[in-house]
Design a protein around this nucleic acid. Structure first.
Length: 225
DNA sequence: GATTGATCATGT
DNA sequence: ACATGATCAATC
C-alpha cells in the first residue's frame, strides 16, 4: 500500500488526525509492513511507518518530508503522561562550514520552522505493535522558541567555528544540545582544530532536549506538567 | 530516573 | 560517504 503525497496542508492534517488512536500494529497491517519485536535493530521503524502513512516523499534526501508544504515530520516517543521519553534528533552538523553560517540560514532553523509532531507511545514496557499513535500537532516556530534555540545554537556553533569541537559535550545547551551522530564511535569526518588545521573529528548532530519538546506538547494540548 | 555517549538500519 | 529515520545502554 502506497500513500500519495498530501495535496495541501489540510490534507496532511486530516490524514494525521485519522491515525490518532491507532496501534502501530494496526497501521503496519494497513501498509503491509511487518512489526519488529523491539526497536533495537529497527530504530527508525516508527518514523518510517508514519512517513509512509502520511505520504512523505523525501526519503534520505536533505529536504523536508513534505517539500512542497515546507513541513518536517517528527515522531515523538512519549510516556503515558505525554512527556517525551527521548531527545529528538534534528540534523547533522557540517563541521567545516558551520562557523560561517548565520542562525537564519542554519539547518536547525530550517528543520524546526514547521514540524508535524506525532506523539507515539514509546515506553519499552509496551510491545511495539501495541503502542498507540497520538494526536498530531502542526508546529510553527514561535518567537520565544526561536530565541531559546538561537542562543544555544550560536553558543554551540561558536565552539565549532573556533575549532573547539572536541570540547563539546552533551550537557551544553539549554534546549538544544550536540551529541555524537554516527554509525559508531570510531567514525570520523573532516573538522578543523583551533589552528585551522584539518583533523578527523567524531561526527555530531543537534538534538532537542525532552524538556523542550515536552513543553511544546504541553502548551498545545494544555497538559499538566 | 535523567542524561550523555554509542549505536542500528536504510536510501541516495 | 553522508543523509534520512531514531533508540539503546552505560553512566551520572
Amino acid at each position: 500500500m502506497t500513500v500519495p503525497p498530501p495535496r495541501d496542508q489540510a490534507e496532511l492534517i486530516a490524514r494525521a488526525a485519522e491515525l490518532a488512536g491507532l496501534r502501530l500494529a494496526d497501521l503496519a497491517a494497513r501498509l503491509g509492513a511487518p512489526v519488529p519485536p523491539d526497536l533495537r535493530r529497527a530504530k527508525g521503524f516508527v518514523g518510517g511507518l508514519l512517513e509512509r502513512a502520511l505520504g512523505a516523499t523525501a526519503g534520505s534526501r536533505a529536504v523536508p518530508d513534505f517539500p512542497e508544504l515546507h513541513i518536517e515530520l517528527k515522531t515523538l516517543p512519549v510516556d503515558r503522561a505525554g512527556s517525551p521519553v527521548e531527545s529528538t534528533f534534528v540534523c547533522t552538523i557540517p563541521l567545516t562550514e558551520i562557523g560561517e553560517v548565520e542562525w537564519a540560514d542554519s539547518r536547525v532553523r530550517r528543520k524546526l520552522s514547521r514540524v508535524l509532531w506525532v506523539p507515539v507511545e514509546g515506553e519499552r514496557a509496551i510491545a511495539v505493535g501495541e503502542r498507540r499513535i497520538g494526536q498530531a500537532l502542526l508546529y510553527e516556530l514561535t518567537v520565544e522558541d526561536e530565541a531559546l534555540l538561537r542562543a544555544d545554537w550560536e553558543e554551540l556553533a561558536g565552539y565549532i567555528g573556533r575549532g573547539h569541537v572536541e570540547e563539546l559535550r552533551g550537557h551544553l545547551g539549554k534546549v538544544l544540545q550536540i551529541r555524537p551522530k554516527a554509525a559508531h564511535s570510531r567514525a570520523r569526518r573532516l573538522g578543523f582544530d583551533a589552528d585551522g588545521a584539518p583533523f578527523a573529528a567524531l561526527p555530531r548532530g543537534f538534538y532537542l532536549r525532552p524538556s523542550f519538546t515536552g513543553a511544546l506538547l504541553a502548551r498545545h494540548f494544555a497538559l499538566p506538567r
